[in-house]
Simulated assay, not measured.
Amino acid sequence: MNTHIPRRLVVAAIVTASALLGAACSAAESAAPASPDVVEKPTTSTSAGSPSKAAPERRPYTISFGGDVHFEGVLRTRLNADPKTALGPIAKVLSRSDIAMVNLETAITTGGTPAPGKQYTFRAPATALTALKAAGVDVASMANNHGMDYMQGGLTDSLAAIKRSRFPVVGVGANADEAYKPWRTTVNGNRVAVIGATQVLDAEFIQSWTATPTKGGLASAKNEARLLQEVRRARKNSDTVIVHLHWGTELQKCPNEAQRALAPRLIEAGADVVVGGHAHILLGSGYLGDGYVNYGMGNFVFYNWGPETGRTGVLTLTINGRKVLKDQWTPASIQGGVPVPLTGAAGRQAVTGWKALRGCAGLAATSS
């Protein structure tokens, strides 16, 4: 009970003892509750026998990225046979990391209407999400030039499948707020935010595929102001901000002007990692100031491949807060539609080749 005697009672000390006691009790009963700020403040020091509520110490974590994934051709056969093994041996590499992410370059539907006039349209049943989960993938982006290949009907089916599966997918939503909304998780005390967006959209579909406040669609990096706004917003309450982009020019080995312009702006806005692909081949990876940028992850789980387009792998970053401590490339080659890790001399040669790609990308091997 609060026994503090209000100042107004002190000046009335001439009253009788019983009156004074009654006034003190009345004051205690009407005292305001403790401030919420005081109640909710974490305990930083404790008395004997009281447990500490100090925040856990942040420790490094790993996140792995793979490139473009769909389930057409031979991959549909694999998916139908057993979704849990559809990604093949690369699953062991993805599963080793705390977080794994890929670009899901397909609509999740068995219906919808193919985008009119589009040469290549990709779709897959909801078991595609089962396959990603089983392979150790934790989050995917559908912000790409195939995410709405089956138009609004396909989008409706995709969003429904995502909701049913409870599998995190960024870069797509029932409106712009949902499409740009980051996926959030906490790993080893690190609050991680992942945002997905596409810089690549066919001109005739930019309007119909881009999410708006009242229409579903994809998060577009062409609306650069909105993307930068989301990065700044995520920066305020995240330890690591990651932007996954669909960007680049098909089969062009060096980043294009749009990529080179956007990457430093994202870093300046608060992104710690910018990674993505589209070109069907590998592009450079490395440090841009204090941030880390990957300009092209290439194909990953893909129905056709050749000497260049079949070169792939897994990029694994070790991160603590805002700092990328280490990057590691696990090289692979696409065989039968899925990535098969390379070992021995072939693996070492592939890593050397991957490191050389940063030469024309303007990226560094170490942070500044």
Rank of each mutant, 00 (worst) to 15 (best):
Q152A: 06
R166T: 02
A258L: 14
Q229F: 07
R164F: 13
S220Y: 00
G171V: 09
N237P: 12
G154V: 11
P213N: 00
H246M: 08
L201I: 15
A134G: 03
Q229P: 11
K222Q: 15
W209D: 11
V241Y: 07
L227P: 13
L245N: 04
V137R: 02
A203H: 10
Y180I: 00
E178D: 15
P255Y: 10
A221D: 02
E250P: 09
A140Y: 01
G248H: 09
R166H: 15
R226H: 07
D138Y: 04
Q229R: 09
R191T: 12
A174D: 03
K236I: 12
G196E: 02
V172F: 00
E250K: 11
G196Q: 10
L201T: 06
R226Q: 14
P213F: 08
H246C: 08
A135N: 08
E250S: 09
W183G: 06
L201P: 02
C254Q: 13
M148Q: 10
R260Q: 14
W183M: 04
F167W: 12
V200P: 07
P168Y: 02
Q252K: 15
G248E: 14
G248C: 03
Q229W: 08
K215F: 08
S158G: 11
V187S: 09
K163T: 13
L228A: 09
V243W: 04
V169K: 04
D149V: 07
V192S: 01
T240R: 07
A179D: 12
R166Q: 15
N190C: 12
Q207Y: 06
N188M: 12
A225Q: 06
D157N: 13
L132N: 01
S141M: 09
W209A: 07
E230S: 08
E178N: 06
V137L: 05
K253Y: 12
K163R: 14
Q152G: 08
A261L: 11
N256D: 15
T156C: 12
P182G: 11
I195Q: 01
S238Q: 01
A197R: 06
L227K: 02
R233Q: 03
D239L: 04
T240Q: 04
I195H: 06
A179M: 10
N190L: 01
Q252D: 14
I195G: 08
M148V: 06
G136S: 03
A221P: 06
T214K: 10
V139T: 05
E230N: 09
W183Q: 02
L132C: 07
R233H: 12
K133A: 14
S158P: 08
R166N: 15
L159R: 02
N190W: 03
G196I: 03
L159M: 05
T214D: 13
A176E: 01
Q259M: 09
L262F: 05
G196M: 04
Q207T: 15
A174C: 11
T214G: 03
S220T: 04
K163Q: 13
Y180W: 02
N175K: 02
R184I: 05
W209V: 02
T156R: 14
D149C: 03
N144C: 10
A219N: 04
K181Q: 08
V231E: 09
N237E: 03
T210P: 05
S208W: 11
A143D: 05
K133F: 08
K133C: 00
G171K: 05
G136D: 00
V139Y: 07
T212A: 00
I242L: 10
A174K: 13
T198F: 00
T240L: 06
K236L: 14
A161K: 11
N144R: 03
A161E: 11
Q152F: 01
Q259D: 01
G196A: 10
T156L: 09
K215E: 11
